[in-house]
Design a protein around this nucleic acid. Structure first.
Lengths: 156, 156
DNA sequence: AGTGAAACGACCGTAGA
DNA sequence: TCTACGGTCGTTTCACT
């Protein structure tokens, strides 16, 4: 809650191993994980519960945009005036925008968008994003190939 | 397999509803999902099986870098010469790099990195990324605040 | 934090519409 | 592709360490 929460949660090797198991398959049974990491089923469940309750980990379905007909993805860099948080809020409210981050550098905001077609992307850029109050200029980086995408931490 | 696989998988409302359930909680039981979407437990199981087998959806654990002590994230834009795929491969092999995409625009590659500290980021940039053969220049966008992050599709 | 045991519920294979 | 059903295995609760 507090933005000054700067302490990393300590994870022992067993918890890391549990997370690895669930990164491979989020539906793997606690009993099976227990066998793999050398813990009873109940102990695994308690650890998973704690990890999810504290927000360290969550088990979710992730879907592939390509397979669902969203063939055009792009990263958009925005240069802005005024409060970037207000602009970021408006971007985040757009369904085609799946990722928004405030940055330091020659862009103030970077946003990833997912569209069904090039036309959709053009419309999104012109009618929605570039027309936002406070957006000075944008630069678009159309995705040619997604090379690596990880949801994985803690195992390294 | 074929890069020309451009057909979107058709999902009916029931499958979309199932995915929504699993996006909320990847461990929700098939029986419970069945109640919510009006299908038998076995039918839900079959649909989930098919969705995961075909790669439309996967159920995985995702973890929070911040909570695990990776306080510094950044997007790095790279301008390159030569085959960008070779460079992307080398970036993808780095543990600190969690996202690599080949782009069209003023950057040829964009990579997201996750570090424990500013020093780690500096080292990564200088000793690993900027020294890669074929990397002409880089631009770093340090993350100030992650505003929105979705793994969600199909529900919109 | 961990184990173990018993009751309960989920999951899986198979059969049939 | 769905439902129905029975066997098996996973999950839950609780008492205990």
């Amino acid at each position: 809650m507090n933005p000054k929460t700067r302490a990393a949660v300590h994870l022992d090797d067993v918890s890391k191993a549990i997370i690895e198991q669930l990164q491979a398959d989020g539906r793997r049974s606690y009993a099976e994980i227990g066998k793999a990491v050398g813990l009873s089923e109940a102990a695994v469940r308690q650890r998973v519960q704690k990890l999810t309750d504290t927000g360290v980990m969550q088990i979710v379905a992730v879907t592939d945009p390509m397979q669902l007909g969203f063939f055009r993805q792009a990263m958009i860099g925005l240069r802005c005036t005024g409060d970037t948080r207000l602009i970021a809020d408006k971007l985040a409210a757009m369904p085609a925008v799946d990722y928004v981050v405030l940055t330091a550098g020659s862009f103030d905001i970077m946003a990833e968008v997912v569209c069904e077609s090039d036309e959709d992307l053009i419309t999104l850029l012109n009618s929605e994003i570039r027309s936002l109050e406070g957006v000075v200029s944008t630069e678009t980086f159309v995705y040619l190939k997604l090379h690596k995408q990880l949801y994985n931490w803690g195992t390294r």
